[in-house]
Amino acid sequence: MKASIGGYARAESVPHALSLLGEADGVGRILAGGQSLIAALNLGVSAGDMLVDITGIETLRGATLDGDRLVIGALTRHGDIARDPLIAEHAPLLAAAAPLIAHDAIRNRGTIGGSLAHADPAAEYPACVLALDATLVLEGPAGRREVAAEDFFLGLFETARADEEILTAILIPCARPGDRHVIREAARRAGDYALAGLAVVRREGRHRIGAFGLDDRPVLCAGAMAKWDAGDVDGMIAALAKDIDPPSDTQASASYRRHLAGVLLRRIAAELGEAQ
């Protein structure tokens, strides 16, 4: 299982990376942490790609505050997200999500931008940014644009990012006092992709629920959110089942995943003090 690639180039800056992508004749692939991409290349899922390695662009690494928004560079690694006090304070959901991702050695390389751009429907971060009402920053030949997380995930491994664009940052409204962030998932083994998972943000009595492993893409569970906002816990569980369209595979059927999502949501609601 040896990766077969067309070529490799190391980008010094975002403009440099964009120019390299432009030269790649449509087969350019952005290499960030590589923890999904290189596995896929080794497995022969893709061959002949022109890899644009952006991991050397230091400006894309780390978290900063910009007013009431937290700005997380796309190359911030899972391990850093788990440990960064700024993230723990302003986006505790992400700090809680990072340790759930795979294992130490993966978290030391994998990046949040890579995870979001890859858009694995079973990954934690995509559901988190939905729940956090985050905005994703894309830079391309035509300049910089911002896309709401809700508009970013279009399908299975499919996003609003154009081939010639790079996801550079994630903008997250800072958590306010009283906000609650909870992520719960059910995975067969520690570090496995979850059979089902939910990321929940409560702010001033309103709820946002991001679901992962429960559809062909991360899902913002609008039906369940509305019922929860209205204080209808049973209605919330029923609505959740309609919000999602889980896959069936060798690990679990769609019905099991749907059931599991309901159990997780009920448990999160209990944790947040909802009467059962």
Binding site: L31, A39, D53, N108, R109
Partner: peptide, 15 residues
């Protein structure tokens, strides 16, 4: 690598 564990199979030497 630089004091942290990494997967040798998920890291290109080029990086």
């Amino acid at each position: 690598v630089d004091g942290q564990t990494v997967r040798g199979c998920l890291t290109l030497a080029a990086q």
